[in-house]
Amino acid sequence: MSESPHLVVLSGAGISAESGIATFRASDGLWENHPVEAVATPEGWARDPERVLRFYDARRDQVRRARPNAAHKALAALEKRGFRVSIITQNIDDLHERAGSRRVLHLHGEILQARSTADPGMRYPLRRGGIRLGDLCDLGSQLRPDVVWFGEPVPRYVEAQEVVAEADLLLVVGTSLAVMPAASLLHQAPLDAEAILVDPQAHQLAPPGVVRLNQPAGQGVPALVRHWTREGRLWMPETLLE
């Protein structure tokens, strides 16, 4: 047990959508009107790397224009108040960091980085601009987006499991809990750790044993944070939760 209660946040596309970042909808197989297999798989990259690079350049521009919303800011404020907060996000944007959160683990990579096609551990920040064919890593191999595509392993999953295993309270925000392996992280939490799901469809999405807060992230997360900061501790505010 740590010296202070540990809040572990699992965040997904729903939290970033409130900042204007388009989400991938699996129901129609399209992401921003592109077939997912064409822009988010190793096969799509092999067939047409220039198309893939153009696609992620556009997503990168979208991320740079976006701003952290009330949910991002509330979590960062909680950490600044001395609470122990770790964030595991499925999102590839940097909105948690820009809000001020310091402990953020990106399961699916970071769009504002490039990585080597020869060595996945070689990453390069993209402070401006994007990636072009002919942009090479230090080994002489083409750079690609630092994004985990469908069909690729999730290299930081074991690290995420270790973080969740130390949780005293889990806060799930803006994710359907349907994308594997991220969805299975709930099962890595200690048996006595409670979990809260904040989502407009929380009643439909929450698995058994998870407390539902049927609100958008920008409303539900700040409300929880206000309760915790007022009391100076993590607790389950029954008057707020439905």
Score class of each variant (00 low, 15 high):
residue 166 E to G: 13
residue 110 E to P: 02
residue 214 N to A: 15
residue 74 A to Y: 01
residue 39 V to A: 06
residue 224 L to M: 06
residue 43 E to C: 02
residue 39 V to E: 04
residue 133 L to R: 15
residue 128 R to Q: 14
residue 126 L to G: 05
residue 218 G to N: 02
residue 58 A to R: 15
residue 91 N to Y: 04
residue 116 S to G: 11
residue 49 P to I: 05
residue 214 N to C: 15
residue 67 R to I: 00
residue 139 L to I: 05
residue 95 L to Y: 06
residue 42 P to V: 01
residue 103 R to G: 00
residue 175 T to G: 09
residue 18 E to Y: 12
residue 87 I to W: 00
residue 142 Q to H: 12
residue 137 C to F: 10
residue 58 A to T: 14
residue 9 V to F: 05
residue 167 A to R: 02
residue 1 M to W: 14
residue 158 V to N: 13
residue 196 I to W: 04
residue 168 D to N: 14
residue 6 H to R: 13
residue 123 R to I: 14
residue 168 D to H: 12
residue 111 I to N: 03
residue 172 V to H: 00
residue 224 L to Q: 02
residue 202 A to Y: 04
residue 190 P to T: 10
residue 174 G to D: 02
residue 121 G to L: 12
residue 3 E to N: 14
residue 205 L to G: 02
residue 159 E to F: 03
residue 30 L to P: 09
residue 234 L to N: 01
residue 225 V to F: 07
residue 15 I to T: 07
residue 2 S to L: 15
residue 135 D to I: 11
residue 3 E to M: 13
residue 180 M to W: 14
residue 107 L to M: 12
residue 154 V to H: 02
residue 184 S to K: 12
residue 87 I to T: 10
residue 54 R to A: 12
residue 57 D to H: 12
residue 135 D to E: 08
residue 140 G to T: 09
residue 73 K to H: 06
residue 86 S to E: 03
residue 223 A to D: 10
residue 92 I to Y: 02
residue 197 L to I: 10
residue 58 A to G: 08
residue 59 R to E: 04
residue 234 L to M: 08
residue 91 N to G: 02
residue 191 L to A: 15
residue 139 L to G: 15
residue 239 T to Q: 14
residue 232 G to H: 11
residue 6 H to G: 06
residue 183 A to P: 06
residue 34 H to K: 08
residue 147 V to F: 07
residue 168 D to C: 11
residue 209 G to R: 03
residue 162 E to I: 09
residue 76 A to P: 00
residue 35 P to A: 13
residue 68 P to R: 06
residue 167 A to H: 05
residue 35 P to M: 07
residue 3 E to Y: 10
residue 104 V to R: 02
residue 239 T to Y: 01
residue 7 L to K: 01
residue 66 A to S: 13
residue 214 N to I: 03
residue 184 S to V: 05
residue 150 F to D: 06
residue 10 L to V: 03
residue 67 R to S: 14
residue 23 T to L: 04
residue 139 L to D: 05
residue 197 L to V: 09
residue 82 G to R: 08
residue 101 S to A: 13
residue 211 V to A: 13
residue 239 T to M: 06
residue 82 G to C: 07
residue 80 K to M: 08
residue 30 L to Q: 12
residue 212 R to P: 01
residue 169 L to A: 10
residue 42 P to T: 01
residue 218 G to C: 02
residue 210 V to T: 08
residue 117 T to A: 13
residue 84 R to A: 15
residue 91 N to S: 05
residue 45 W to D: 03
residue 48 D to Q: 10
residue 228 W to F: 11
residue 231 E to A: 15
residue 190 P to I: 10
residue 149 W to V: 02
residue 114 A to K: 04
residue 175 T to I: 07
residue 101 S to M: 03
residue 147 V to I: 15
residue 11 S to V: 05
residue 156 R to Y: 11
